Deep mutational scan, measured.
Amino acid sequence: MKGKVVSYLAAKKYGFIQGDDGESYFLHFSELLDKKDEGKLVKGSMVHFDPTPTPKGLAAKAISLPLE
């Protein structure tokens, strides 16, 4: 699924993505496929991810940034 980063707290390594389906997904650095892309996780960045339901809500897994 595609989505847009709505927040990312680099110090805490987490944030949120708004998916194309309108839902909010929890984003964690550990799910970023290329850790070098962390600096690109800023508000408004477009990402691809696997939407995954968890006991705490919806989460983004296997997060990647589109090729530039």
Rank of each mutant, 00 (worst) to 15 (best):
M46C: 13
G39A: 14
P51Q: 04
T52D: 09
P66W: 15
S30N: 13
T52L: 13
L32W: 02
P51T: 06
D50M: 15
K12F: 10
K61T: 11
K43Q: 09
E68L: 12
A11L: 10
S30R: 11
D34E: 08
G44D: 06
K2L: 10
K56R: 13
G57A: 03
G44C: 08
L65G: 04
S45I: 15
V47P: 01
S24L: 15
K4T: 13
T54L: 06
L41F: 03
V47K: 00
F29M: 06
G15M: 02
I17S: 00
G57E: 01
P66C: 15
A59I: 15
S24Y: 14
F29V: 12
P55C: 09
Y25H: 01
D37H: 08
D34T: 06
E68F: 12
E38M: 06
K56V: 07
D50E: 14
P55Q: 09
Y8Q: 01
G3I: 02
Y14V: 05
P66M: 15
G19E: 00
L32C: 03
A62T: 07
E23M: 14
L33T: 08
S7L: 14
G44W: 05
L65M: 11
S30V: 08
G3N: 01
E23D: 06
S45C: 15
D37I: 08
Y8R: 01
M1N: 05
S24I: 15
E31Y: 09
F26M: 05
T54P: 02
T54A: 07
A60T: 02
V5P: 02
L27D: 00
A62L: 09
K12G: 06
M1H: 06
S45F: 08
Q18Y: 11
D20K: 05
P53Q: 14
Y14D: 02
T52K: 13
G44K: 03
P66F: 15
L41V: 05
D21K: 03
P53D: 11
A60Y: 00
K56L: 10
G22T: 04
Y14C: 07
V6R: 14
Y8I: 08
F26Y: 09
L65D: 02
Y8G: 01
L32M: 05
G57M: 04
K4W: 15
A11M: 10
F26W: 08
P55R: 10
D34R: 07
D34K: 06
Q18K: 13
F26T: 03
V42M: 11
E68H: 12
L33V: 13
H48M: 15
S24A: 09
G22D: 06
V42A: 09
L32N: 00
E68A: 12
G3E: 00
